[in-house]
Design a protein around this nucleic acid. Structure first.
Length: 592
RNA sequence: GGUCCCGUGGUGCAGCGGCCUAGCAUACGUCCCUGUCAAGGACGAGAUCGCCGGUUCGAAUCCGGUCGGGACCGCCA
C-alpha cells in the first residue's frame, strides 16, 4: 500500500510515529511560512502541517497543492500545541508534521464543493458523481446502503436462506409494468426482457426444493420515474417453502425491526408491529398504505344524510354509496382557494366533488348548507365529532371511491400541514386484501400479483362463485405511509393458477404460452410456499430520511432516464443493429 | 399523455420593464501573512441572464414556443 494509515486513524496514541497517508486535499490554509492542509479519505480528515524553515520542500509542495489534488504525505504524528486542538475532528488532537509530499495526481477545480454542504443541481452531481461521492453526505448514504444490504443478506443467510442469482434475461410478458427488452442475435426479431422481479423464478426455485431463497435482486420497470421510483430498483427478494403468512411476516418483521433499531435515526413506535386489515385501512384511512403518524381518521357520514333532500348525497346513498369525511382541526377559516385545491386532490381518486363544512360556533357554514336541514347538520357535527373551529370535508361516491378520495386528501393534508409525528417510524402490516379488484372496464385485476393465493379454502371457493369477495393471502409492509413491500402465499396448483389467470382475463391456452414454465412446474410436486419482496431503495430512503430514491444509488439517472455520467442512452452501432435484425424507425430526438 | 415549478459568472442565490455598465456569498488567480481548521487581508479575472421568436422607444424581467431539470396525475402486477 502507498500508505501506512488512513486519514481517520491519527490519534494521540500514535504520537511520535512516522506515518504515510494518502488522500485528497480537503482544504488548504496558507499562512505564508506555515501551511496547513486537511487530507481527506473515506475514513476521515487529518491535518497536515509544514513550516518553511523546518521543511522547505514539503512546505513548498503544500503551498502549490489545490483542492482535490491527490497527495501522499510522509511525516510524524505529533500532538497539536495546547489551544490549537480541534474538538470537531476525531483526529483533532494531533497533526502530521510533513517531511515529504508526493503529488499522486492533480485535479482541475471541481465543478462544485466537496467540502461544503450546499445543494447542487442533481444532473451536475450525477455527471460528476465521482466528485459528488467524495462529499460526506453522499458517502454516508452509500455507506448506509451497503451496511443495510449486508446486514439483511447476513440476516437471511444465517437463518438458512440460500442466496441465488436469477437470470437477468427472461421472457417478456405484457402484464404489470412496461418491460425493458434486449434483442437477440441468434433469434432475430425476438427479445429477452429484463425482469420486473424474479417472481416466477423464485417460485420455480421452491419447486426445485431450495426451500429458502434470498436475493438482493435488481429489477427493471420502464414506467415514468417519481421521487421514490426509479427504472432500476433493488428489492430484497425472499421465498420460503411450506410457509404460512405468519412465517413470512414474522421473519421480515424481525429483520426490519433489527435494521431500523440499528440504522434508523428514530425508534419504531410499536413492537410487535400492528396488523391492520385492508378493510380497516380503507375504513379508517382511505388508503392501503396508511400513514398512522397522524390520526385524522375518516368518519362515515352516510347515516347523517340518509334522509336528506340534498340531491348529490341522496342519489349516491340511494345507489348504495357512502358519504365519507375527515375533520381538519382548526381549519374552519380555510379559504375558497384552499378548498378548491383540496377538491382537485380528491378528484384524482374519482371524487366528483368535495363538500366543506366549517364549524363556527353554533353555526355550520357550507356551500350546500341551504340544501340541508338543521337536523342533518347537527347529525353531521355529532357523527364527525368536529369541534368549534374545525373543518369537515366530505365526498359522496361509492364506498371505496369516497374512502380513497378522502384518504388521498388526508395524506395530502398530513404532508402539507405537517401533521405527522416525526419522532418515530410507524411500521405495520396490511393484510386480508381482496384477491381481485375491478378494472374501469369492468373486468378483474389482481391487487398483488397473479400468483398470490387465496387466504383460506373458503376464499378459494369464492374465486368460482364470487371473485370480488375472495380474500388474498397478500400482506404488505408499510412504514410511515410508504409501501415498502408485499408478498403472499403462492398458488401451488396448476388448475387453481389457471383459474386465477382466467378470472384476470387470461384464457388457459394463452396462460400456457405466457406462464408455461411456472404452470408446468406446478405439476411436478410444487410445495406450498410464499414469500415477499421489499424495496431496498425505499428502505434506505426512509432510514436516511431522504425525499428521493436517486441519492440511495451510486449512479442515478434523471427523471427521463438519462444518465449524465455515461451519456446514455446512445445510438447503437449500425453493424450491431444489422446483426440483430433491427432497423430504427423513430425520428431522432434533438436533445440539447 | 397531462398539470405545476425552476433555468442568471465554476457553485449557490438576488434582481422580475429603464436606476443593470447585471448584485451578493463562495470558489478561482496573484500577492501579503508563524497556529489555522468555513483561517485572515489586498488586488484581479470570470455571465452575450438555457435557446428561438414576439410585445415595447427599451426585455434577465412581459408573452409564445422549444430544450433541459424537478414535483405531481395517469402509469407503476
Amino acid at each position: 500500500m502507498l500508505r501506512t494509515h488512513t486519514c481517520g486513524e491519527a490519534r494521540a496514541s500514535l504520537a511520535g510515529k512516522e506515518v504515510t497517508l494518502a488522500g485528497w486535499v480537503h482544504t488548504r490554509r496558507d499562512h505564508g511560512e506555515l501551511t496547513f492542509i486537511d487530507l481527506r479519505d473515506r475514513y476521515g480528515i487529518t491535518q497536515v502541517v509544514a513550516h518553511a524553515k523546518e521543511n522547505p520542500a514539503a512546505h513548498k509542495a503544500l503551498g502549490k497543492a489545490r483542492n482535490e489534488w491527490v497527495l501522499r504525505v510522509r511525516g510524524t504524528v505529533r500532538p497539536r500545541p495546547e489551544g490549537t486542538k480541534n474538538p470537531k475532528l476525531p483526529t483533532g488532537e494531533v497533526e502530521i508534521a510533513a517531511s515529504e509530499i508526493e503529488v499522486l495526481n492533480e485535479s482541475k477545480t471541481p465543478p462544485f464543493y466537496v467540502n461544503e454542504e450546499t445543494e447542487v443541481e442533481e444532473t451536475l452531481r450525477w455527471k460528476y458523481r465521482y466528485v459528488d461521492l467524495r462529499r460526506e453526505r453522499s458517502r454516508d448514504i452509500i455507506k448506509l446502503r451497503h451496511e443495510v444490504t449486508n446486514f439483511i443478506r447476513n440476516f437471511f443467510v444465517e437463518r438458512g436462506f440460500w442466496e441465488i442469482e436469477t437470470t437477468m434475461m427472461i421472457r417478456s410478458d405484457p402484464t404489470g409494468a412496461r418491460d425493458f427488452i434486449v434483442p437477440s442475435r441468434y433469434y432475430p426479431g425476438k427479445f429477452w426482457a429484463l425482469p420486473q422481479s424474479p417472481q416466477q423464478l423464485k417460485q420455480i426455485l421452491m419447486v426445485g426444493g431450495i426451500d429458502k431463497y434470498v436475493q438482493i435482486a435488481r429489477c427493471f420497470r420502464d414506467e415514468d420515474p417519481r421521487a421514490d421510483r426509479i427504472y432500476e430498483l433493488t428489492q430484497l427478494d425472499v421465498e420460503m417453502s411450506f410457509a404460512e403468512p405468519d412465517d413470512v411476516m414474522s421473519i421480515v418483521e424481525e429483520c426490519y425491526t433489527a435494521v431500523f433499531e440499528r440504522f434508523a435515526k428514530k425508534p419504531l413506535h410499536r413492537k410487535p408491529w400492528p396488523r391492520i386489515t385492508f378493510d380497516d385501512a380503507v375504513r379508517l384511512y382511505g388508503s392501503d398504505r396508511p400513514d398512522t403518524r397522524f390520526a385524522m381518521e375518516l368518519v362515515d357520514l352516510t347515516d347523517a344524510f340518509r334522509a336528506t333532500s340534498f340531491a348529490v348525497f341522496r342519489d349516491v346513498i340511494a345507489d348504495g354509496g357512502a358519504v365519507r369525511g375527515i375533520v381538519v382541526p382548526g381549519k374552519a377559516g380555510a379559504t375558497r382557494k384552499d378548498i378548491d385545491g383540496w377538491t382537485v386532490v380528491a378528484k384524482t381518486k374519482g371524487a366528483k366533488g368535495l363538500v366543506s363544512f366549517a364549524i363556527a360556533g353554533s353555526e355550520i357554514r357550507s356551500p350546500v348548507a341551504k340544501f340541508l336541514s338543521a337536523n342533518e347538520l347537527a347529525e353531521l357535527r355529532r357523527t364527525s365529532v368536529a369541534k368549534d373551529g374545525d373543518l369537515v370535508l366530505a365526498v359522496a361516491a361509492d364506498y371505496h371511491t369516497a374512502s380513497m378520495s378522502i384518504g388521498t386528501l388526508r395524506s395530502h393534508l398530513g404532508a402539507t400541514l405537517g401533521l405527522a409525528d416525526e419522532s418515530a417510524h410507524h411500521a405495520m402490516w396490511v393484510y386480508r386484501f381482496p384477491m381481485f379488484e375491478r378494472t374501469p372496464e369492468g373486468g378483474w385485476t389482481f391487487s398483488h400479483n397473479p400468483f398470490a393465493g387465496p387466504l383460506t379454502a373458503e376464499d378459494a371457493n369464492l374465486m368460482e362463485t364470487d371473485p370480488g369477495e375472495a380474500r388474498s393471502s397478500q400482506y404488505d409492509l408499510v412504514i410511515d405511509g410508504n409501501e415498502l413491500g408485499g408478498g403472499s402465499i403462492r398458488i401451488h396448483n396448476r388448475a387453481l393458477q389457471e383459474r386465477a389467470l382466467e378470472i384476470l382475463g387470461v384464457p388457459k391456452h394463452e396462460a400456457a404460452v405466457r406462464f408455461g414454465a411456472l404452470l408446468d412446474a406446478l405439476e411436478y410436486g410444487a410445495p406450498p410456499e410464499g414469500g415477499i419482496a421489499t424495496g431496498m431503495d425505499r428502505t434506505v430512503m426512509i432510514l436516511a430520511g431522504l425525499s428521493n430514491a436517486r441519492e440511495t444509488i451510486a449512479f442515478p439517472k434523471t427523471q427521463t432516464g438519462y444518465d449524465p455520467l455515461l451519456d446514455a442512452p446512445a445510438a447503437a452501432d449500425p453493424k450491431l443493429l444489422e446483426e440483430l435484425g433491427l432497423r430504427v424507425v423513430a425520428k431522432p430526438e434533438k436533445h440539447d
